[in-house]
Amino acid sequence: MKTTGKLRRYIYVLTLFFITLSGFGQMPIFKRYYIADIPGLGWLAQFYVTHIIHYAAASVLIALVLYILFDFIFNGSGLNRITGSGYLKIVILAGLIVSGGLMVFKNLPGVYYGHTTIIVLDLVHLSLCMMLLCVSLYTLIWEKKWVN
């Protein structure tokens, strides 16, 4: 059981790392600011590579979130076990998945979004990402857990 928990945590942290990095890589900043010049990070300036990595990491994150959610449901664990910071991260993750899902849908052929919709989605997705990073940092420093 403990091993499964540790594995989940490693997958979550690794996914969060790559999804954030590749997410910021959607903006043309890594080459401009020499980060892509660091050996091993050249891929950050290749937009199709960051796009694929972002999608792949998002797939893993969605699978993990649903796995934990249904595991929670099947085990009949009480919702009252979830901590305040846990709830906050769940809401942010849900927002990220929904806004990200809408953007994935936008990228399909024959789907037309207006400028405003795309900009709102982009800003919401970016803001939620920043919030998740801040809350995660807070929970890491103060050792706050998802559940009691």
């Binding site: 796009h51 993990l64 249904f70 595991d71 899902g101 994935v104 990228n107 052929p109």
Partner: peptide
């Protein structure tokens, strides 16, 4: 350029998560 197979991964991901949880249960 936009067809790289990751859309399929996106579709499979939620199902994979639910199936894994059910399998464990």
């Amino acid at each position: 350029m936009m067809a790289d197979g990751t859309n399929l991964a996106m579709l499979i991901a939620p199902l994979a998560g639910v199936v894994a949880a059910f399998g464990k249960f």
